[in-house]
Every structure is written in structure tokens, then in C-alpha cells.
Design a protein around this nucleic acid. Structure first.
Length: 893
RNA sequence: GCCGAGGUGGCGGAACUGGUAGACGCGCUAGCUUCAGGAGCUAGUGUCCGCAAGGGCGUAUGGGUUCAAAUCCCUUCCUCGGUACCA
């Protein structure tokens, strides 16, 4: 036995080819083996008496590290960005957060993307497929607070481990272009870009509330725990505190962000972004506060409404608890109650607001406003269902035509007045339901001089009339807010400004960038931002006057990093600017971006904003970052829940790779189901994919062998002749090529693999027969390897090189091959099968020449005994030839 | 509640613009093979009736359009993702 091993002059590469179970058991060694280019010598055909031992076993763990090392040595993954001889293809996959361990979800995102990179290369593209690490963020800091050392150390160790794991995928990442966002070489340019935004008026400071713990300072959302909202560290109750913070003016691009022309993104993502931006057209209307016994009146209250047509139905007014006029307007008698309500509302938590069917609450402030359209006095309330941050923080309440106002009015017994109705409706019918939807054809009622007008026109007329008096103007409002980028944290990009006693807020000079994070960090027993206590960091001089100044201690949201990192991949070490303009012009926008749909709004919208802002600053030419986007689904734990260490449902890919090899894991993840679907993780079925690779291995190394167990082994399937079989095989290969190409293009990896399995099964049927080894067999095998190469790069490389050796050719990589072309002649078939239905039910199938006419098909069909039986001597009333004779349906009765 | 996606064998999933439902794989059954195997090979496998040939029924639910519906339209139910009173 072991003819291979025995005849080999080099034991190094074949050491694990031993077939004994002991050798197999020891096969988990992942250490790289010496690579020898002429590994594949012809495999001797051994004694048929012992078929199972005739060939070397498929041992992925022996093959894969060897090829990975070889590819790295040849720098096959790296991209010459200056090469313009081929069309460019920028393929980007969302960079990982270095949490420490890669889990199966990372593989699910990245390995099919790698298959795409390889597929495109085979089509002659110059593919750029970089990788990096989203290295700032809370987990590193949490680890540090818990005593895990400096966030930098923690992060870098994790990155080191993840690099190793990422390499084990066999993915063609361009490692030389790697970006680590926590490196000053990268975050320096966050700072530089921030300063440009500041100059352009796109960055500004404003007050905003944060979750605040008295001991640990600002808390992130995930650091607030429990329904009572306590601090994750010390357990103290969390409160809201207003801080001066930095914002980026995303709203300046609201309208442009609504425009998706020119980019090919999934419809659901576009819908989500559109909803997030939430553009509404309406009007701002000014109400005057009525004079009262305790105040002279005259204050102006502006409200935003999308329904100015309902102005006559406004029976009260509601201010947000935070509205600045609340203290001033409140009647002295009501002050205590209003203050209590406002205080409670400010403490009110988001969790609270999550409770769906919360009763409407509020308090009358004892003042009244005058409806500008009819001079009516209407009472003013504060209620937390009006949000300070949207519109003007005040509304006119029209209970008859707004669900929330209706509920409020019902709770407080306020008047509900119908002002919009269908033409045939009684205008004074009681409003019993909640909210009357805005429908076409409705007219205004109970609206004085506007009554009888169509609602839309009436609304416009009301606004026009008030506009003349300076009391209204058409207005567009967005739900989108400006982006709060301040974080009161250590582990992020320091915001490059200083506070000078004399000059106020002063930007750091460009030549003084980067503002580096201090190398030591002292949490001093609290979770508060250590920068606040680091005198060496804090103390500086004002760039303007040279006087003493304090540094800003806020750092930037990590979404800043991910808003432009793909530009930096193009010139990661560039020292004189964030982006190499020439390379950016050539390589961006990104041709294809892949990643999770959980980033539908934030990351993908910030990236679009940032790109537009950079374009307006003249730094880049394109206004959209990603031409095409694909969201793969999410892999959940076996329990159907999101994978997390705390749930203990994380699947470790290293273990699977040790057992089956990277190719099997890659293939299995692609085969599981549609890529955009994801789903709970289950290793059930991975054996089937591994078996498939084993069969490919057998087909290549032992085409003439056969396994005991097949009674017909060695002979062609009944009724087949050699010439037909060979032609049929070749035809199958080219049809598979046609379909598989389309599947790769459409990211339909699961069906792509199914088709390759079918082709492998077809080959297997002819293994050991006269067909094996024929030119058609050989062509089919060659196509099969080429088609499989992007998905399973190692085994195909191995078999390809053995094949070359066998043919006496010098080695070259399968991954440098061109994607094969379909031979249209091979795809056409001489006969075809036509399903025959009677009254829509399948009754028979007839085989006709491919070019048969309808009359010929009809004759063939009617001659069939089964059809005659089904017709039961009736004559068809009608014969439907569907799809040009693809199917026949006989209609009787 | 609103927005988005979806519901197909025991399981993961196929099915192009309506045209053979269940490709491919898992699992299961039988046979072969092996010193052995949670290995390999061959065949079968939606479901019900039937020895078989064959037939009935089948894509969450109820209805509709059509020669023909998993696919199109309407009802109801359920699952998943996003969002949180946006005036």
C-alpha cells in the first residue's frame, strides 16, 4: 500500500498522506509545511485489488497552510493600484471590530466576498480587496476599566490573533493596505478632516443630554442597565445631564441623501434611510399667547404642522416639557404642578417611552394661545408626547384628525372638532373614531370662509392668508438630526481643539496634528474619562495667543473612522494628506460593498454624508461612496439568538477549520442558504459539503477507479453509448458553466454550489468507465476545477497543480487562470422533453427533436397511450403550447 | 402601531418574466463493501390509497383571476429584522 508515499523522494509534503487511522488522528497540525513547487508528481495507478488505499487521502489541513504561504510569498493578494492595464474593481467588505476572536459570522461575511474577488480576477479585473480593523471603541475601554491593561495593548493583541484567523480563511486580503483606526497614522486624519469641517461650518458645538452617572461620568447606552437604569459599574441611578458637545451638520445634506440615483442599493436599505431622514412638508404657523391676569401676553409660539388645512380644528396647544417658554408662560397657580411634571419628564427614560400603549400624560399651564385664523383662545398644555427636538417643540393639537391629539383630548375631556370630511358626510357628526386619514376628495368643513374647499387647496389657502400677515410660512422639516460625534471617552480620536481663556474655542494647528492619546491611562477607580484627569494632556497653549489653554477631552464617535476608511486603504501611510486624490479618482467609488444590514442607516448614511462633505471640500471627486451594496444575512447562534460570548452560543471557526479545512467551511457557509438570509447556525450538513470535496479529489486522482458497492461499476449506464455519453457530459459542463457564472454574478452561491455538485455527480457516474479520461471528461474536470476555484481556493489549487504536473507542464496558479467561456454549440441539445398536461395536470412527458414544430409535438402527444387514457376519448377543445412549446396543456370539456 | 422581509418535505433550502413543485445537501431506509468506523459506494425517500400499474391530496389560511398559481390580486393568521408618540 501507499504507493504514493513509497515512491516519493520527498517525505515532507506527503508526510500526512499516510492512510492509517493514527496518521489521520494526528492530522490537526496547522503548522506551515515546506512548500515545493513541483509537489505533484504523477500519481501512480496502483493495484485495483486495494482501491481505497490507492490514492492519497484528501487532507485539507496539510494542503491549506502550504498554499496560503505560497500565495503570500507570491504576493498574489496584493494589488498594484497604479496598474491601469486592466479595469479596476474595488471590492470592500466591512472591516471587523477586533473583539478578540473571529466567529463564524465573520467567515459568513468575508469568505463569499473573497470568492467574488477571485471570480472578478479571473475575469481580468485588477481587484483591490483590502482589510483593516475598526479599532477604537468601548469594549477595549471596558476591558481596561476591568483591569485588562491599556486599551491599546488589549486591541493590538486581539488584532494579532484575528490576523492569524483571517489568514486561515485563505482569503485574498491586500494586507499591505491594512488600516488600523487606532493608529495615529490613521486618526490624525480624522482630526485633520474635522478641522476642515469646522472651517466649512459643518462642525459646531451645542448642548445635548447624555446619560450621566455621578461616579463614572458619561455612560454609553450599553453601559446603562436594567429597567431602573443604573450604571453597569457602580449601580448608581443614571440621570440625564446637558453637556456642550460637538455635532456634524448632516442635515445640510438631507435632501441630497434622499437621492439614490446612480447607486445600486437594495430597496429595503433605501427605504430605511428615507424613513430615517423623514422629510415632511408643511408649514410653520405662529400663535400669539393671550393676555392674562398674570402676564401681558404677546409671546410668539411657533408650531410646525403637515396639516395646515386642519387649523380650524386646533382646540388646544401642546409644548414639549423642555420648551423654553414653559417657565415664563405658566400661571403662578399651576407652577408647582408644571415643574413637577417637567422634572419627571426629564427623568423619563427611553425605556419608559418604549412602552407602547402608554397613556397620554400632560399638564395645563394655565395660559392660552390665540388661533391666528379665527382668534379663538385655546388652552396650552405641556406633554411629553411632544418632542423638543423635532419641529419647533410645540404643536397645535387637532384631536379630530390626529390620533395622538385625539387620545390626549379624550383623556383631558377637550373639544374634538371635525374640520375635514368627505363631501357627503355630515360635518357635525360626532368624531367617535380616533384619527381620520387624509384621503383624496375630502373637503374642509367648520372652517368659516374656507369651508367647502378641497382639503389640500384649503390648506394652501390658509397658509397663504396667514403668510400675508407674517404668521405662517411653508416649511420642510426632517426627522434627521445632526450627528453628535462627541464621546466622553478615552479610547477614540481626540477632538483637535483647545479652550483658551482669552480666545475661546481654538482649533489645533494642522502642523501640530495628531493630537495623540496619552500612552498611559489611569482610570483611577472610576469609569470617568481619564483624559479629564490627565494634566499632561489637558495643559497646553493656545495656538492663537500662546496663552494657557485646556485641551478638549471629548473623543470622536467610532462611526467617524468608518465613514471614510476605504479612502485610506488606497494610501494608508500617506503623510501629507488623508487621501491620495489621484488614486481616489481612479479607484472610488467602491464597486461593491458587502456587510450586514444592521448598518443600514447609521454607518451607511454617515459614509454618504462624509463622502459628500469631502467632495465639497475638494478632497475627492465622487459624491457617493459605494456604487453597489449587498447585505448578507446574519448568522445566529444555534438557539436562534444573536451570537455573543455571554450567551455562550458562539461558534468557533478554528475548530471547524481544524476538522474539515477552510475550503469546507467556506463552501458550507455559501451552501447553507441564500447569502442575504443568514439564519441560526447549525453544522448539520457540513459533512455533505466535505464529502463533495472528497469526491472531487477522487475524480481527479482516481478517475479510473471504482468503489465496491456499485453493481454496475465500470459500465456505462443502461442504454447509453460512449459517444453520446461523452457529448452529454460536455454539454452538462457547459450548461453548468453558463448557470454558475450567472449565480456568482447574482451572489447566489448556494445554487452555484448545488450545480457544481450535480456536475460532479454526473462525472462520478462515468468514473471507471470508458468515458473517464476522454477529452470530454478532461474538459469537464478542468471546467469543474475552474468554477470551484473562487469558492474553494486551496483544494482546486492543489488538484490543478497536480494536473499540470501530470501533463508535464510548469506550475501556474489556478487563480491566475481566466474564467472559461461557454461553448454555445455544446449547450444546445438535439432533443428535449415536453411535459404534457391535461386540464393543467401533468399526465405524461414526450421527447421530441429540439426543432420539432407545434404540429409535430401535437401529433407526438396525441399518440401517447397515457394521454389517450386521460382524454378518455374526448377531443381537446384547445391545445396550449406554453413558452413556445416548452409545455403542452390539453384543455377538454 | 408603523416600515421592511418572509411562511414550500423530518431539516437547510431549489423553482427564470405564472408553465414538470421539492434541484442540491442533511437525515432516514435497504443493499454492497470494509479487520473496523459516526468511513465509502449503489438505490430509494412530499403525503395518502394500492402488490403494482396508477390515482387522490399537497407550497401558512380562506377566497379570486387564468388553459395553467408557491409565483398575480384580496382576507385572515404567524415569524423575523428595523424603529419608537416626528405633529
Amino acid at each position: 500500500m501507499q504507493g504514493v508515499r513509497g515512491s516519493s523522494p520527498r517525505s515532507s509534503t506527503n508526510a500526512t498522506a499516510d492512510l492509517s487511522p493514527l496518521a489521520g488522528a494526528a492530522g490537526g497540525d496547522l503548522s506551515p509545511r515546506e512548500y515545493v513547487t513541483d509537489i505533484a508528481e504523477p500519481v501512480p495507478i496502483a493495484e485495483p485489488t486495494d482501491p481505497r488505499n490507492r490514492i492519497e487521502r484528501y487532507d485539507a489541513t496539510a494542503i491549506e497552510p502550504r498554499w496560503q504561504a505560497r500565495w503570500a510569498e507570491l504576493e498574489m493578494n496584493e494589488t498594484d493600484l497604479e496598474d491601469s492595464s486592466r479595469p479596476k474593481y474595488y471590492l470592500l467588505t466591512m472591516y471587523p471590530y477586533p473583539s478578540g476572536d473571529l466567529h463564524i459570522g465573520h467567515w459568513y461575511i468575508k469568505t463569499p466576498t473573497d470568492a467574488l474577488a477571485r471570480f472578478r480576477r479571473m475575469h481580468g479585473y485588477n481587484v483591490f480587496f483590502p482589510i483593516g480593523f475598526d479599532a477604537f471603541g468601548l469594549p477595549a475601554e471596558n476591558a481596561a476599566i476591568k483591569g485588562g491593561g491599556h486599551p491599546f495593548t488589549w486591541t493590538m493583541q486581539n488584532i494579532e490573533n484575528m490576523r492569524r484567523q483571517l489568514r486561515s480563511m485563505g482569503a485574498t486580503f491586500a494586507w499591505k493596505s491594512e488600516v488600523v483606526t487606532a493608529d495615529p497614522e490613521f486618526y490624525r486624519w480624522n482630526q485633520w478632516l474635522f478641522l476642515r469641517f469646522l472651517e466649512a461650518g459643518l462642525a459646531y458645538r451645542a448642548m445635548s443630554a447624555v446619560d450621566w452617572c455621578p461616579n463614572d461620568g458619561t455612560l454609553a447606552r450599553e453601559q446603562v442597565e436594567g429597567t431602573d437604569r443604573h450604571c453597569w459599574r457602580c449601580g448608581a441611578l443614571v440621570e440625564k445631564r446637558d453637556l456642550e458637545q460637538w455635532f456634524l451638520r448632516t442635515t445640510a445634506y438631507a435632501d441630497e441623501l434622499l437621492d439614490f440615483s446612480g447607486i445600486d442599493w437594495p430597496e429595503p436599505i433605501k427605504v430605511q434611510q428615507t424613513n430615517w431622514i423623514g422629510r415632511s412638508e408643511g408649514a410653520e404657523i405662529e400663535f400669539e399667547v393671550a393676555a392674562d391676569d398674570y402676564q401681558p401676553g404677546g409671546d410668539r409660539l411657533r408650531v410646525f404642522t403637515t396639516r395646515p388645512d386642519t387649523l380650524f380644528g386646533a382646540t388646544f396647544m401642546v409644548l414639549a416639557p423642555e420648551h423654553p417658554l414653559v417657565p415664563k408662560l405658566t400661571h403662578p397657580d399651576r407652577l408647582a404642578e408644571v415643574e413637577a411634571y417637567v422634572a419627571q419628564a426629564r427623568r423619563r427614560t427611553e425605556i419608559d417611552r418604549l412602552s407602547r400603549d402608554r397613556e397620554k400624560t400632560g399638564v395645563a399651564i394655565g395660559a392660552a394661545a390665540i388661533n391666528p385664523v379665527n382668534g379663538e383662545r385655546i388652552p396650552i398644555f405641556v406633554a411629553d408626547y411632544v418632542l423638543a427636538g423635532y419641529g419647533t417643540g410645540a404643536i397645535m393639537a387637532v384631536p379630530a384628525h390626529d390620533e395622538r391629539d385625539f387620545e390626549f383630548a379624550r383623556t383631558f375631556g377637550l373639544e374634538i372638532r371635525r374640520v375635514v370630511a368627505a363631501p357627503d358626510e355630515d360635518p357635525d357628526a360626532p368624531v367617535d373614531g380616533a384619527f381620520i386619514a387624509h384621503a383624496a376628495g375630502e373637503i374642509l368643513v367648520n372652517s368659516d370662509r374656507f369651508s367647502g374647499m378641497p382639503a389640500d387647496d384649503g390648506g394652501k389657502a390658509i397658509v397663504a392668508e396667514l403668510a400675508e400677515r407674517g404668521l405662517a410660512e411653508p416649511k420642510v422639516t426632517y426627522r434627521l438630526r445632526d450627528w453628535l460625534v462627541s464621546r466622553q471617552r478615552y479610547w477614540g480620536t481626540p477632538i483637535p481643539v483647545v479652550y483658551c481663556e482669552r480666545d475661546g474655542v481654538v482649533p489645533v494647528r494642522d502642523e501640530d496634528l495628531p493630537v495623540r492619546l496619552p500612552e498611559t491611562v489611569d482610570y483611577a477607580g472610576s469609569g470617568d474619562n481619564p483624559l479629564n484627569h490627565d494634566e499632561a494632556f489637558l495643559r497646553t497653549t493656545c495656538p492663537r495667543c500662546g496663552g494657557p489653554a485646556r485641551r478638549e477631552t471629548d473623543t470622536m464617535d467610532t462611526f467617524v473612522d468608518s465613514s471614510w476608511y476605504w479612502f485610506r486603504y488606497l494610501s494608508p501611510h500617506q503623510a501629507d494628506g488623508p487621501v491620495d486624490r489621484a488614486l481616489a479618482d481612479r479607484w472610488t467609488p467602491v464597486d461593491q460593498y458587502t456587510g450586514g444590514a444592521e448598518h443600514a442607516v447609521m454607518h451607511l448614511m454617515y459614509s454618504r454624508f462624509w463622502t459628500k462633505a469631502m467632495a465639497d471640500l475638494g478632497l475627492v471627486g465622487e459624491r457617493e461612496p459605494f456604487k453597489r451594496l449587498f447585505n448578507q444575512g446574519q448568522i445566529l447562534g444555534a438557539d436562534g439568538e444573536r451570537m455573543s460570548k455571554s450567551r455562550g452560543n458562539v461558534q468557533d471557526p478554528d475548530e471547524l477549520v481544524r476538522r474539515y479545512g477552510a475550503d469546507t467551511v467556506r463552501l458550507f457557509l455559501m451552501f447553507m442558504g441564500p447569502w442575504d438570509q443568514g439564519g441560526p447556525w447549525s453544522p448539520t450538513g457540513i459533512g455533505g459539503v466535505h464529502r463533495f470535496l472528497n469526491r472531487i479529489w477522487t475524480l481527479l486522482l482516481d478517475a479510473h477507479g471504482h468503489e465496491p458497492g456499485d453493481p454496475d461499476a465500470g459500465s456505462l449506464p443502461a442504454g447509453e453509448h460512449e459517444a453520446d455519453a461523452r457529448a452529454a457530459l460536455r454539454s452538462a459542463a457547459h450548461r453548468t458553466l453558463r448557470d454558475v457564472s450567472a449565480d456568482y454574478e447574482a451572489f447566489h452561491f448556494n445554487t452555484m454550489i448545488a450545480k457544481l455538485m450535480e456536475l460532479a455527480n454526473a462525472l462520478f457516474r462515468y468514473r471507471g468507465t470508458v468515458v473517464a479520461g476522454s477529452p470530454e471528461w478532461d474538459e469537464t474536470v478542468r471546467l469543474l476545477l475552474l468554477m470551484l476555484a473562487p469558492a474553494a481556493p486551496h483544494i482546486t489549487e492543489e488538484l490543478w497543480s497536480r494536473r499540470l504536473t501530470e501533463m508535464g507542464r510548469p506550475w501556474s496558479s489556478i487563480h491566475a487562470e481566466s474564467w472559461p467561456e461557454v461553448d454555445p454549440g455544446a449547450v444546445v441539445e438535439s432533443t428535449r422533453e415536453v411535459p404534457v398536461q391535461v386540464n393543467g395536470k401533468l399526465r405524461d412527458k414526450v421527447v421530441v427533436p429540439a426543432n420539432a414544430t407545434q404540429a409535430e409535438i401535437e401529433a407526438a402527444v396525441l399518440a401517447r397511450p397515457k394521454i389517450q387514457a386521460a382524454l378518455a376519448s374526448r377531443t381537446p377543445d384547445r391545445i396550449v403550447f406554453a413558452g413556445g412549446g416548452k409545455l403542452v396543456n390539453l384543455v377538454v370539456r
